[in-house]
């Protein structure tokens, strides 16, 4: 492979890992627990900013050209873990307010509005995370320690991404295949019945929401340390919708479906087409891409409403015959 090709492939692989992680997190929240989290992207953003601030050093270090809260220079895995913690804590905060008994569509509206409020505040409160310019020159983990070539380091980062991705996969799979996962599905399918069986619906939802939020934060951290820059423009509401589209195409409620959705929608449609030669005026290709994502979602909603890999119906062990 030529060097350019290696860069291209490794870039896509990192994006794939990040998107698979994000889709798994959202699948836990939406596919399994039925929470319509249209604010998903802000938890990813929160994780990204946390990781950025914890690796950039103090605000005045880089000549003070960008301003942000806090600032530290922590070693490799710590910023990632902190990002997950912040994503989880923010989810806890939002969840305590928003996960009330609301109609699905109203809850979706609340989440959408929270997403818009967060974008407005982060864009205008310049002292928080440098306003609309966002943060830049975020250092990459271990780059100075390893001393590899640029291409070599790309592959190391792919490995790091996939390692975290595998960790998330195992974690999410253990939840969804456990009694907890079954209970969450029960809450999703019939809240009243689950409540009547003595399940604490609110706490269960909160558990799924916070876990999903922590995964979102982690995925954001991995993405931001790779691309070294992050601004409010990259976490607008449509980005959340891309993950929803991925789940719907892949099959929500099914982890394999979530991963395949991540491969099909964000990676195949939105990332790889970046290298199609631009035609027309600047922005035309982007607009057409979004049109295609919309049409694709509509098509799948019509022909395969449960996605390419539908959630598998529950299997129960055959009961012993009662004499």
């Amino acid at each position: 492979m030529s060097t350019a090709m290696q860069f291209y492939v490794s870039n896509l692989l990192v994006y794939l890992g990040v998107d698979v992680m994000a889709c798994l997190g959202l699948n836990l929240q939406f596919g399994v627990a039925g929470i319509v989290n249209f604010a998903f992207i802000i938890f990813q953003a929160a994780g990204a900013y946390t990781a950025a601030v914890l690796t950039l050093g103090s605000s005045s270090a880089g000549g003070g050209f960008q301003s942000y809260i806090g600032g530290a220079r922590l070693p490799f895995p710590v910023p990632f873990l902190a990002a997950a913690v912040v994503g989880g804590l923010l989810s806890l905060l939002v969840g305590l307010v928003a996960l009330r008994k609301l109609r699905t569509d109203y809850q979706a509206m609340v989440m959408l509005v929270i997403s818009l409020i967060a974008t407005t505040v982060a864009t205008n409160a310049t002292g928080l995370v440098n306003g609309s310019n966002g943060l830049a020159t975020i250092p990459k983990p271990l780059q100075s320690v390893l001393g590899l070539s640029l291409v070599g380091y790309q592959w190391v980062y792919v490995a790091i991404t996939f390692a975290f991705c595998a960790l998330v996969w195992v974690g999410v799979h253990r939840i969804t295949s456990s009694p907890l996962g079954r209970t969450l599905r029960a809450v999703r399918d019939n809240e009243a019945a689950a409540g009547a069986l003595g399940k604490n619906v609110t706490v269960l939802r909160l558990v799924a929401f916070v876990t999903g939020g922590a995964i979102a934060g982690l995925s954001g951290a991995i993405l931001v340390q790779f691309i070294s820059a992050w601004s409010p423009g990259s976490w607008l509401f449509p980005e959340s919708f891309v993950y929803f589209a991925a789940l719907i195409v892949g099959g929500s409620g099914n982890n394999v479906g979530a991963a395949v959705g991540a491969l099909l929608v964000p990676v195949a449609f939105l990332e790889s087409t970046r290298y199609i030669p631009q035609f027309g005026y600047p922005g035309l290709v982007d607009a057409l891409q979004w049109v295609v994502v919309g049409l694709l979602t509509l098509t799948v909603m019509w022909f395969r409403p449960k996605g390419v890999f539908p959630e598998r119906p529950g299997r129960f062990a055959r009961r012993a015959q009662v004499p």
Binding site: A108, I248, Y281, L288, V291, V293
Partner: peptide, 28 residues
């Protein structure tokens, strides 16, 4: 057979198509 949440996704998809279709026609 599309229900409440499904219809939200349908209308958002339509919104994406319309908004970006208009942008493609008239320019950004």
């Amino acid at each position: 057979g599309t229900r409440l949440f499904g219809m939200i996704i349908v209308t958002i998809s339509v919104s994406l198509v319309l908004q970006n279709g208009l942008q493609a026609i008239f320019g950004a």
